[in-house]
Each structure stands twice: as C-alpha cells, then as structure tokens.
Amino acid sequence: MWRFTLLVVALLSTWVIPAQADECPALLQGEVQKLRSEERIDLCAQFAGKPLVVVNTASFCGFTPQFKGLEVLYQRYKAQGLQVFGVPSDDFRQESDNSEETAKVCYVNYGVTFPMSETQRVTGSEALPLFKELAAQSQAPRWNFSKYVIDAKGKVIASFPSSTTPDDPAFLAAVEQAIASQR
C-alpha cells in the first residue's frame, strides 16, 4: 500500500511542476491603467508567454512618427503572437499631462491599435516596476522610444535606442527571435 501511495505522490508532483513553470516572470508582475480608459492592464495576463516589444513613448518627441512603424510591426507579426506595449512617459519632458491629448496622438494621428498605458515613470527610483526590471536586464531608457524585445519567457533579448526604427533589420531579427521563443 505504501508503494502505491508513493507512486501517486510522485505522479502528482510531476503535475505540479508545469504549473510552476507557467508563473508570471518578474518583468510582467503588476498592473497599469490603460490609456484613456477605466480598464487596467494586468501585464501578466496580457503578455505572459508571448513575445513582446515594450516602448516608452512621448507625444511631442522627434521620434513620435515611429508610432506608425510600430503599428506596422504589430500588424505584421500579431498573428504570430507578437504583442507591442506602449508606455507614455514625461521623464524626458515631451509628453502631455493631458491623457486625452496623448490618446489623440496615439490613436487618431497614428492609428495605434496595440495597448497603451497612461503616462508612467520609466526611469529612476519611481519607475514603473516593468521598467525597473527592463533596466536590470538591459539598461534604462535614455530617451523616448527606447525599444525592448522580450522573449516568451519574459527575458530581454535586446534593447534598442530611440534612433532605431521599427523596420531596422537588427530590430526585426530580434523580434523574429522573440517570436521563435514561444515554440
């Protein structure tokens, strides 16, 4: 009888291990307010297990037209599981303090359909935990439109400076590597 009990315990313990492997990575723990919405984005529920590009954005930056390229990227790869997440920030003093204006730039001017948060801190001790973890795995944003490519396990594959456009070959190669990580 005790051998049967040990066998059952051993089998049950193997069922528990996969559940632990699916835990939310540190990078995605937390919630943020969705831009111009009452909804909150649970980062783990929305992005865990998926390849992800995170970008800190600003409405009045010389790099703001990159929204168009980011939307093209999202449309091109979303059927393959890619998620894009935009995080407006005024850390570099180029974001409106009015979320309606920020939303207009994103949704109306550039046709963004990927998730966007309300304005957040992305640098320093008050940074959003997501960006603290991005900085720990790579580096903190040095300017608006810094891009982070994250694999399906929640690890930063690569980070790119503001000047890297969404159609840059090295950036696209990192995105494709992230997409391959979910297989």
Score class of each variant (00 low, 15 high):
Gln177Pro: 05
Cys61Tyr: 07
Ala79Trp: 13
Gly62Met: 07
Val9Ala: 04
Pro166Gly: 10
Thr57Tyr: 02
Ala174Trp: 00
Asn56Cys: 05
Trp2Met: 14
Phe60Asn: 08
Ala45Met: 08
Ala158Tyr: 00
Thr165Trp: 04
Val84Leu: 10
Glu118Tyr: 07
Trp143Lys: 05
Arg40Met: 12
Arg76Ser: 06
Pro166Asn: 10
Leu12Gly: 10
Ala173Tyr: 14
Ala136Gln: 08
Phe85Ala: 06
Ala136Glu: 07
Cys44Ser: 14
Thr165Gln: 14
Thr113Gln: 14
Ala152Gln: 02
Thr57Phe: 05
Cys24Leu: 11
Pro115Gln: 13
Gln75Thr: 11
Thr113Asn: 15
Thr64Asn: 04
Arg183Ile: 11
Lys50Tyr: 13
Glu100Pro: 10
Ser181Arg: 10
Arg142Phe: 02
Phe67Gln: 07
Ala136Pro: 02
Pro51Asn: 11
Ser59Gly: 02
Ala174Thr: 00
Glu71Thr: 07
Gly154His: 03
Thr165Pro: 08
Ala79Glu: 15
Leu130Lys: 00
Trp143Ile: 00
Ala135Gly: 04
Arg76Asp: 08
Leu11Ile: 05
Lys104Asn: 07
Thr57Cys: 04
Arg36Ile: 11
Ala48Glu: 10
Cys106Ala: 13
Ala180Glu: 06
Val122Ser: 04
Ile157Leu: 02
Leu28Trp: 09
Glu38Lys: 12
Asn98Thr: 02
Ala79Ser: 15
Gly49Ile: 13
Ser159Thr: 01
Val9Leu: 07
Gln177Ile: 05
Met116Ala: 15
Leu52Pro: 09
Trp2Gln: 11
Glu23Pro: 13
Ala170Glu: 13
Thr165Glu: 13
Ala21Phe: 12
Asp167Ile: 07
Leu70Ser: 03
Thr57Ile: 08
Arg183Gly: 15
Gln46Gly: 13
Arg36Phe: 12
Leu172Tyr: 01
Leu6Lys: 10
Val175Glu: 05
Ala10Asn: 07
Gln139Met: 08
Ile150Cys: 09
Val72Gln: 15
Val112Ala: 11
Gly69Ser: 06
Pro88His: 01
Ser13Asn: 11
Ala26Trp: 09
Lys78Ile: 09
Pro166Trp: 06
Phe4Gln: 15
Val156Phe: 03
Ala174Leu: 02
Leu70Asn: 02
Ala127Leu: 05
Ser125Cys: 09
Val8Glu: 06
Asp22His: 15
Leu73Lys: 01
Tyr77Lys: 11
Leu7Ala: 14
Val32Met: 00
Ala180Leu: 10
Leu12Thr: 10
Tyr77Leu: 11
Met1Thr: 14
Met116Val: 11
